[in-house]
């Protein structure tokens, strides 16, 4: 902008020291967040590079055995266990969470809402370690009661179900938010063409909230992938490639927690393998988040 000689003092730019300071602090916190993220990726990357100098990407992604002491580093047993627990988690969390959300957003009266919401909040506030023991001491015996001896003491199904219960409050509240965000005028439009409540809910409100619902699913999925304590306690110790959810198998996070808990020498390949797993996990969740974001963005303007 060009400097002119005479600006009326009434219109002259002012200096706001307070505003300046606050703006600087805000910018600084933003930079710190970004900096920490970059640092994490950097550390993960650094150790992973060393790991992948010893172990080929090909071995990592295409072999089915993970035995660090005999230098077998195929990710599939861990990944498979993670997928299994997450899948069970989703099978539990999505339907229950979805219907709870629909009930809360569309059907429940205010008094009922006021009763259910705190319950969900309590559920959300329970430490995951409690869920782990809940899986071990309640879900597994229950599964054994139903399916008999086929169910091991440690198994991915039980851990997955516990993850699902853990995620119900998250899924329910996020979907409820998405449904409630559907503007009233869209509902009214549907009622005005002679739709019943169910038709309005399933035909108009849910499709309109689709972006929020999909984003919720992806968020829940990345939470399930990353869940550690429950699987460490209830899914079993020791990588095993099995498609049977009643068998014990170690997930990526479970494995990392167990190994990191032991005394590993810093520059051993075992130690570096943890970073490789972590980096892989990071990419998965990162990708899920990106996907969630782009989907919400795509549907975003649809309310207006």
């Amino acid at each position: 902008m060009k400097q002119t000689n005479a600006v009326d003092p009434k219109l002259c730019k002012r200096i706001h020291p307070v505003n300046r300071t606050i703006e600087t602090i805000l910018a600084a916190t933003g930079i710190i967040t970004i900096g920490v993220t970059i640092a994490i990726v950097f550390i993960l990357g650094e150790e992973s590079i060393i790991f992948f100098k010893h172990v080929s990407l090909r071995q990592f992604f295409t072999t089915f055995e993970w035995q660090p002491h005999i230098e077998k580093f195929g990710i599939w047993p861990l990944l498979n266990a993670t997928i299994t627990t997450s899948l069970f988690g989703m099978l539990v969390a999505l339907p229950i969470g979805f219907f709870t959300a629909v009930f809360l957003a569309e059907y429940a009266s205010n008094t009922i809402k006021r009763k259910i919401k705190p319950v969900l909040e309590i559920l959300a506030g329970i430490p995951t370690v409690v869920f782990g023991y809940f899986a071990l001491n309640f879900i597994t015996p229950f599964l054994q009661l139903v399916f008999g001896k086929a169910v091991s003491v440690y198994n991915t199904a039980s851990a997955g179900i516990a993850i699902g219960i853990l995620l119900v409050p998250l899924v329910a509240s996020l979907i409820e938010e998405a449904l409630s965000a559907v503007p009233r005028h869209l509902r009214e439009a549907a009622y005005a063409v002679g739709a019943t409540k169910l038709e309005v809910t399933l035909g108009i409100v849910v499709p309109s909230a689709l972006s929020g619902i999909i984003a919720t699913i992806l968020l829940a999925l990345s939470r399930a992938f990353g869940e550690t304590m429950i699987v460490a306690i209830a899914a079993g110790a020791g990588p095993a490639f099995t498609l049977n959810p009643f068998k014990s198998a170690e997930t990526m996070t479970g494995h990392m927690a167990r190994i990191a808990g032991g005394d590993l020498p810093y520059d051993s390949i075992d130690y570096q393998s943890l970073f490789a797993i972590a980096l892989f996990l990071f990419f998965i969740t990162f990708f899920l988040n990106l996907l969630g974001r782009s989907i919400s963005k795509r549907y975003m303007e649809h309310y207006e």
Partner: peptide
């Protein structure tokens, strides 16, 4: 029937906006 202050088409195609009401 009713038409509102703010245009409030459904989050559907033009076609479905009309067809949905008829279908239900």
């Amino acid at each position: 029937g009713m038409v509102f202050q703010k245009p409030n088409p459904f989050a559907k195609s033009i076609y479905q906006n009309i067809a949905w009401g008829a279908k239900i």
